[in-house]
C-alpha cells in the first residue's frame, strides 16, 4: 500500500474533525473558565492552548497553578498526563514512516487522542493519505484554541452546573470513537473488559491519575496481543 500526502487528504481529515468539535468545545470552555479563575490573561490562555494543545494536562497544570508559577511542577504535570502520547506516535508508523520534514514533525505536533484514534480507523478502512492526520489535527487545534478563548471571554457567564448535559459531550466523544475502533467480539471484548476493569480497579485503589488510565490501556493491549499470538499459533497448527 503506497502512502500519499495530499491536500485532499488534509481536507478530508479537517471535515472529519467537524463533529469532534462537539466534544472538544465544552472541554475547551471549561479550561478557559478555569484559566481565568487562576488569573491567566486571555493572551496567556491562548498561548497555553496553542503551544501545549493537550486539554487534560492543561487542566491538571491549572489545578497546580501558583503565582508566580512553579515551572517544574507544571512541566511534571504535563509530562505525567501526556506520557500516554508516547506510544500513539509510534502506533501511527503506518503513515508516519513515509513522511519527512515538516510533514512528519508537524503532523506529530498536532496529533491528539481524537486524531490518532480516527487515523487508525481511517487506515483500517483502507485510507492511505497521511494528510488526514495533519488536517484533522490542525482543525482540532483551531477549535481548541478558539473554545478555550471563548471560555476565558465568557468567564462567569458559562458558570454551568457540573452535571449540565453539555459536559457529557466529552464522554460521548470517547464512546463514539471507541465504537469506531470495534473489530469483532473475539478480538475486542476480552481486551476492552480487562482495560476497563484494571482502570477502574486502579482508581479504586486511589492510584493517582494517569496511572489508572495507563494501567488499563496496557493491560487491555497485553490481553489483545496474547489472544492474537494464540490465534496465530492455532492457525499455524491447523494449517500444518
Amino acid at each position: 500500500m503506497r502512502v500519499i500526502f495530499t491536500q485532499a487528504g488534509i481536507l478530508r481529515g479537517a471535515r472529519r474533525g467537524v463533529p469532534m468539535l462537539l466534544g472538544i468545545a465544552p472541554f475547551g470552555l471549561v479550561v478557559g473558565v478555569i484559566a481565568l479563575g487562576k488569573g491567566l490573561s486571555l493572551a496567556e490562555t491562548l498561548v497555553m492552548s496553542a503551544v501545549v494543545f493537550a486539554g487534560a494536562s492543561q487542566l491538571l497544570a491549572l489545578e497546580l497553578w501558583t503565582n508566580p508559577p512553579d515551572v517544574l511542577a507544571v512541566a511534571i504535570a504535563a509530562f505525567v498526563v501526556n506520557i500516554r502520547l508516547v506510544p500513539l506516535g509510534a502506533a501511527l508508523a503506518f503513515w508516519l514512516d513515509h513522511l519527512r520534514g515538516w510533514r512528519l514533525w508537524g503532523s506529530l505536533f498536532f496529533a491528539v487522542d481524537h486524531s490518532f484514534a480516527l487515523s487508525v480507523a481511517e487506515h483500517r478502512a483502507g485510507g492511505r493519505d497521511a494528510g488526514f492526520l495533519l488536517g484533522l489535527g490542525v482543525f482540532t487545534w483551531v477549535g481548541w484554541v478558539a473554545s478555550t478563548a471563548a471560555g476565558h471571554l465568557l468567564g462567569a457567564a458559562v458558570a454551568l452546573p457540573a452535571d449540565h448535559p453539555l459536559f457529557f459531550a466529552a464522554t460521548a466523544t470517547f464512546v463514539s470513537i471507541l465504537v469506531a475502533l470495534w473489530r469483532g467480539p473475539r478480538q475486542d471484548v476480552p481486551a476492552w473488559l480487562v482495560a476497563a476493569a484494571v482502570a477502574v480497579g486502579a482508581q479504586a485503589l486511589r492510584l493517582p491519575p494517569p496511572v489508572p488510565l495507563l494501567a488499563g490501556a496496557l493491560a487491555g493491549a497485553t490481553t489483545a496481543t496474547l489472544a492474537e499470538t494464540r490465534r496465530r499459533r492455532q492457525g499455524e497448527e491447523g494449517g500444518a
Binding site: P87, D113, T171, F174, L178, A196, A199, L213, G216, A224
Partner: peptide, 15 residues
C-alpha cells in the same frame, strides 16, 4: 502498540 488504541479508549470511557 498496534493493540493499544482501543483499550486506551475503553479505559477512558470506563473511568
Amino acid at each position: 502498540l498496534r493493540n493499544l488504541p482501543a483499550p486506551l479508549f475503553a479505559a477512558y470511557v470506563a473511568l
